[in-house]
Nucleic acid binder design. Sequence first.
DNA 1: TTGACTAGAACGAGCGTTCGTTCTAGTATT
DNA 2: AATACTAGAACGAACGCTCGTTCTAGTCAA
Lengths: 200, 200
Amino acid sequence: MIKTNTRKSPEHTRQLVLSATLQLFTEKGYFNTSVRDIARESQVSIGSIYHHFNDKEGVASAMYNDLLKRMSESLEDIQRNNDSAHERCHAVIELLFKVTEEEPQLMEFMMYSKHREFLPDEAPICSAQPFMLMREMVAHGMETGEIQNLDLMVASSCLYGGAIRMITSRLDGIIEKSLLEYVESVWECSWRSIAVNQLV
Amino acid sequence: MIKTNTRKSPEHTRQLVLSATLQLFTEKGYFNTSVRDIARESQVSIGSIYHHFNDKEGVASAMYNDLLKRMSESLEDIQRNNDSAHERCHAVIELLFKVTEEEPQLMEFMMYSKHREFLPDEAPICSAQPFMLMREMVAHGMETGEIQNLDLMVASSCLYGGAIRMITSRLDGIIEKSLLEYVESVWECSWRSIAVNQLV
DNA sequence: TTGACTAGAACGAGCGTTCGTTCTAGTATT
DNA sequence: AATACTAGAACGAACGCTCGTTCTAGTCAA
């Protein structure tokens, strides 16, 4: 045996694998990444990977759920710390932009990866919890009278759609400056699109 | 030899292959579709496929460019037949919704398929011609004073973002009714988000 | 007859996965 | 303190299979 991963903890190994996997999947995609690639990049042996996750799909699935969970936690924080829909939704867009800048790979995976091609049993991303929380905030805004009484899908698509489009453009390299510089102007447009008319 | 594809024309064969491919790619994705699958579905032999397209990527590439071209032509029609940015952009959203309803597979492929995973040399979709035409319409609206003087990316993201989000939701099965029923309400929100203030 | 086209068997590379084994850290026994 | 034992983490060669692609033989229209 040439070298041995001096054992730390199962959790440590899992994290090694997951972070290498995120890196590789966002770089080359699921199908262009082999388990061997993951083993090489994470310095964890193939056998170990199969020991911790059952198969390649298990790795993808674990990673995906990790990311969704982290995202949901952030959104719940926002919900706790803000009362009005106006503040909450603004904070959401700021969060999404910040994550895009700080962890573009994470964002790319969540946005782009059409995970259903390799995780066919997962729900589509927009019925996943983070997006449901985002819609919930919009619904709350309708109740408090901040937001026009529209179809919920229409309202949340219009409110978040602009920001999401900015994110994908940024990830595709079409936008060169940091998204954080655009928060306020995107927010003004997005909010105006569905807010009840105030004095203009 | 058991049977022979009664020979029609090279163009006919190409179309058989491309339409089967669109079907398969949107159904199962590029990587879950083998050349054998395409041959079976299109009733064109493997040899023929390789004769007409050089390789699997060639099939994908031909199809992708076909779709972009058709989309561009529709957008140019819109540009020709409408003068104001207001009319043009409204027509664009209506077009996108209509295509989504009539040819969801086409839309799904263009929207979702992260084509860069298998067409790494193509530009990202949002710098492809259709999206450039869409941005051009927005720029035109700024010149005529219909649209606020915003950063071009911000303005077009906000104008089209809501509609695009509706499309992906529809494709994911989150929206059950035809998008055509939402055209006007989405349009009102989208346009309000970036139009210069008129009397409210 | 020629050359574009069709056909599908054959090929080899690379894949996900398995499995027999080794290694390590911790526990129980003395 | 020394030893024996155990659970499970780590290892990677090997397997079987599927894939994209090639190749040779055959077909048909001009």
